[in-house]
Amino acid sequence: NSLAEAKVLANRELDKYGVSDYYKNLINNAKTVEGVKALIDEILA
């Protein structure tokens, strides 16, 4: 998966839960796919 794909999928996942734009910005600023995954795990914990 590319970083861009990971960000799109992460933001879709956040949308399902009604997560605020603050967290979407964190996702969009992530530098690695692993970073995106770690943020998602933390946000949805």
Rank of each mutant, 00 (worst) to 15 (best):
N1M: 13
N1C: 13
N1E: 12
L3E: 01
L3G: 00
L3T: 02
L3Q: 00
A4I: 10
A6E: 10
K7D: 02
V8C: 12
L9F: 04
A10C: 04
A10N: 02
N11C: 09
N11H: 13
N11M: 10
N11D: 07
R12N: 14
R12I: 15
E13L: 15
E13Q: 10
E13N: 04
E13Y: 15
L14C: 07
L14I: 08
L14Y: 01
L14H: 01
D15G: 06
K16L: 07
K16R: 11
K16Q: 08
Y17Q: 06
Y17G: 03
Y17S: 05
Y17F: 12
G18L: 07
V19S: 07
V19P: 07
S20Y: 04
S20K: 06
S20V: 04
D21N: 08
D21E: 12
D21L: 05
Y22M: 08
Y22F: 11
Y23G: 03
Y23F: 12
Y23A: 06
Y23M: 08
K24H: 09
K24N: 03
N25R: 07
N25P: 03
N25C: 10
N25A: 13
L26W: 05
I27D: 00
I27Y: 00
I27L: 06
I27S: 00
I27V: 11
I27M: 03
N28R: 06
N28E: 13
N28Y: 05
N28S: 08
N29P: 00
N29S: 12
N29V: 09
A30S: 08
A30C: 06
A30P: 01
K31A: 12
K31R: 11
T32C: 03
T32G: 02
V33W: 04
V33G: 02
E34V: 05
E34A: 12
E34N: 06
G35L: 14
G35K: 13
K37L: 13
K37V: 07
A38I: 11
L39V: 08
L39D: 00
L39C: 03
I40G: 01
I40V: 13
D41N: 13
D41F: 10
D41T: 14
E42A: 14
E42H: 14
E42L: 14
E42Q: 14
I43Q: 01
I43D: 00
I43S: 02
L44V: 10
L44R: 14
A45L: 11
A45H: 10
